Computed example of a mutant assay.
Amino acid sequence: MSRPLEKTIDATLRSVIGEWHELLVRLRYVPHDPLAVRLDFLVAESEPPVATWVFARDLLATGLTRPSGEGDVRVRPHGQDATDVELISGRARCLVRMASVPVRDFVVRTRPAEEHCDEEIATALGRLLTELLPGGVRKNADS
């Protein structure tokens, strides 16, 4: 997979003072950073994002089914149909609530890229071990 993936989703945002606001968010996956996703906050779909948060793709994937994350980004299911992404910066925090179906669709579409990344990492690691170890890497006779 060599091109970015994007999914624009209607969401609601709960501000620090507890007010809910409707907004558009865009989930983005870029192949040169295969372990991350980007969450863009949009004023309008055609305009550049007003803010972007970058966090682990696995955090988003896990958060669809159970609470995930301990740092600045926390993801958890909200009932059967919604997913909450809590963003924390210092003492400020906000909560973004999105329908789970488009989030799940986005995560599934990034999976082949993740598998490709795993293959590239394994190949690079094998090459590195071959260069570093005298005689190269040998398979264990018991396997």
Rank of each mutant, 00 (worst) to 15 (best):
V30R: 13
V73R: 04
G63N: 05
D40C: 10
S46P: 09
L60M: 10
R66W: 02
R57F: 00
T62M: 03
R76M: 06
F55M: 04
D72L: 03
P31V: 06
V25T: 11
P31S: 10
P48F: 13
E45G: 07
R28S: 14
L64P: 02
L27R: 00
S46V: 15
P34D: 00
V43W: 12
A56D: 12
V37H: 01
D40L: 09
T52M: 01
E45Y: 05
R38Y: 13
L23K: 07
P31K: 12
T62D: 11
V30L: 13
V25I: 11
E70R: 13
R57T: 00
L35H: 07
F55D: 07
G63A: 02
L24I: 10
R57Q: 00
F41C: 00
P48Q: 11
S68D: 04
G69A: 04
L59E: 01
R66T: 13
R38E: 15
V37P: 01
L23M: 12
Y29P: 02
T52S: 11
R74K: 12
L39D: 08
V54W: 09
F41E: 00
A44P: 04
V30N: 08
R57W: 02
D33R: 14
L60D: 11
R57N: 00
E70H: 14
R28L: 13
G63T: 03
P34F: 01
G69W: 05
V73F: 10
A51S: 14
T65Q: 06
P48I: 09
T62I: 12
L64T: 03
L35I: 12
V25D: 07
T52I: 04
G63V: 01
